[in-house]
């Protein structure tokens, strides 16, 4: 009894992380299975954090990270000197919000529809067709979009021309791009989302639907009073996960589809593309690191806030 007590107090910190010694012994197998994941997480997510120092240094390749001179917040000046920081933050947040809302709504609708035809032999084809774009790289997709929207010989402009509408220079009209990007993202992600929700629907106890039918509930009422409430936890978790990543824009989508056109930056420039451009065009690693650091800080705040709000509403649904 006394011995046990001693062990616990001397290993106070360890106990806090891994539970008591007995817990550790019991769960040794599970812990060892988690080990590779933890090691990889450490290598790829924690070790590189040393690089954050670059944001506060005048980084010279020859001097290395630790050898370069400290410059305080000088690298952040170019972010906040103009309205750049505001613009990329706004674009990242608004576009991602739009994506979350549109994709969730579309995925849910398609999942419900697919469920209705689930016994049909065509279901597999529908699913594959919807899922297929998920595997197409944005680089390839950017060529589809260019073929469609190119001012000279683009398919869309040819159609418009046939209808008597004057052609539009899509790649120079930033106002259309929120819609174009949302559609592209929907095309890419809706198959994946609908399959997740379809799985959720199939997990609902069929007795509920049978009972509802006996009571004379219409299809719409079944969806409204059974499917939706039963899917709600799944929707919330997926949305929360998406909100957690709301500060990380899909680089491929935002960089390749607008073809890195400066005139489209007002609506298509997001933090990720901005960081990339600072790095390759200005060649200034410190400024790029500063922008990346800003993204991390605000992104972290977003996750914490989102989780806090959810916990206030319903603690069971929060992530931690």
């Amino acid at each position: 009894m006394t011995m046990q007590k001693n062990v616990t107090s001397s290993n106070g910190l360890l106990t806090k992380f891994f539970g008591s010694r007995r817990d550790m012994q019991t769960n040794l197998t599970l812990l060892s299975m988690a080990l590779p994941g933890i090691v990889l997480l450490f290598i790829f997510a924690y070790l590189p954090m040393v690089g954050l120092l670059i944001a506060f240094k005048d980084y010279r390749f020859a001097d290395g990270i630790l050898g370069s001179a400290w410059v305080g917040f000088a690298n952040f000046r170019f972010l906040f000197g103009t309205d750049t920081a505001w613009r990329i933050t706004r674009n990242t947040l608004l576009m991602n919000c739009l994506f979350i809302v549109v994709n969730t709504a579309a995925s849910l609708t398609i999942a419900v529809l697919l469920n209705e035809v689930f016994k049909s032999r065509m279901t597999k084809y529908y699913q594959t067709l919807l899922f297929f774009p998920y595997f197409i790289s944005w680089v390839i997709a950017s060529y589809f979009v260019f073929a469609l929207l190119s001012a000279q010989g683009g398919i869309l402009n040819q159609w418009l021309d046939a209808l008597g509408v004057p052609p539009t220079a899509w790649y120079r009209s930033p106002q259309y791009w929120p819609a174009i990007l949302t559609l592209a993202n929907l095309w890419n992600g809706v198959g994946f989302g609908s399959i997740v929700y379809l799985a959720g629907i199939l997990g609902i106890d069929p007795m509920l639907f049978e009972a509802a039918k006996m009571d004379g509930a219409s299809k719409w009422q079944q969806v409204r009073y059974i499917t939706m409430p039963m899917l709600l936890p799944l929707v919330i978790i997926l949305t929360l996960l998406a909100i957690g990543r709301i500060f990380n824009a899909d680089f491929g989508l935002f960089y390749f589809l607008p073809r890195d056109t400066p005139m489209l930056y007002p609506t298509t420039d997001v933090i990720d593309t901005f960081v990339y451009r600072s790095l390759v065009q200005l060649g200034d690693i410190s400024m790029a690191a500063a922008a990346g650091f800003y993204q991390s800080v605000v992104g972290f705040a977003m996750v914490v806030t989102a989780n806090w709000i959810v916990r206030r509403i319903n603690a069971d649904y929060s992530l931690y």
Binding site: A74, R77, F78, G81, T82, T84, S278, Q281, L282, D284, M287
Partner: peptide
Amino acid sequence: ETEVAQVTA
């Protein structure tokens, strides 16, 4: 450096 980055943009 900062001004060049901003002006270039």
